[in-house]
């Protein structure tokens, strides 16, 4: 593998990881965010705090526990073995599991806030117009929370792109398999290859900025249209 191929493989892996992670997070995070927005359960505050934990925890701490859990002796590793697979450490699936947990608040919190902002009235209106709960969820709640979905998807994606500590802990640094962009940059810097580090770092910076610009631009236009 030439150094250029290796960078391309890292880019592809990073995009794939961010894409899969965002998709998984939207699927799992939507019901969780809905529950957080609507439930009156007393222990909801516990779940809220747990969801926010990756915001404050050092990625190495999270990565360390995930490494232990996903190793051959850990509960997740055992589960995978019992299902006839290999423990997910140092594999793409392991990276996805780690990223999903690491980026969870970036997806769940905007969705939760968007769902909470809808209030109950539009849903009651839809119910009196004969929409069942599942029906009004998809025809009223989701469209009304669309700016929340966009924010969640872009933040989840962009945050996973920049992941370093968790990936390094549970995935290691296997080119083509678990080496993501941020780790490739680190490696270039270690090797004093600043030119290639600049290329990757600059690309990541530009891509992240453009994505955020798109979200804020869209949300602003959306809110001025609504106002």
């Amino acid at each position: 593998m030439t150094p250029a191929d290796q960078d391309l493989a890292a880019l592809w892996l990073t995009l794939k990881l961010a894409g899969v992670t965002t998709l998984v997070l939207l699927i799992l995070g939507t019901p969780l965010a809905w529950w957080l927005a609507r439930s009156t359960a007393r222990w909801k505050v516990m779940v809220d705090a747990l969801v926010a934990l990756p915001l404050v925890l050092p990625p190495t701490v999270l990565g360390f526990y995930l490494l232990v859990a996903m190793g051959p002796e850990g509960p997740l590793g055992q589960l995978f073995t019992a299902l006839g697979g290999a423990p997910p450490v140092f594999s793409f699936i392991g990276l996805v599991i780690g990223s999903v947990i690491y980026s969870l608040p970036f997806v769940v919190q905007p969705l939760r806030d968007a769902f909470a902002a809808i209030g109950t009235l539009p849903l009651e209106v839809a119910a009196t117009l004969r929409a069942s709960p599942l029906d009004w969820f998809f025809t009223v709640a989701v469209p009304m929370a669309r700016s929340g979905f966009l924010t969640a998807a872009v933040l989840g994606f962009a945050h996973t792109l920049g992941e370093f500590g968790v990936v390094l802990m549970i995935g290691g640094n296997i080119p083509g398999q678990t080496q993501v962009l941020s780790i490739a940059i680190y490696e270039h810097v270690e090797a004093l290859d600043y030119g290639r580090a600049h290329l990757l770092a600059g690309g990541l910076l530009a891509a992240s900025f453009l994505m955020l610009l798109a979200v804020y631009g869209f949300n602003r236009r959306f809110s001025t249209v609504r106002a």
């Binding site: 009235l121 539009p122 009651e124 209106v125 839809a126 119910a127 009196t128 117009l129 004969r130 929409a131 069942s132 709960p133 029906d135 025809t139 009223v140 469209p143 009304m144 669309r146 609504r226």
Partner: peptide, 27 residues
């Protein structure tokens, strides 16, 4: 509620803002 054949007009305006007037009427 969605299985009761009723119409309900609320105090506040309740049109769905993500739909047009026509789509609201047909909802």
């Amino acid at each position: 509620p969605h299985q009761r054949p009723l119409g309900y007009v609320f105090q506040q305006p309740t049109l769905f803002t993500h739909l047009s007037v026509r789509q609201n009427l047909q909802y």
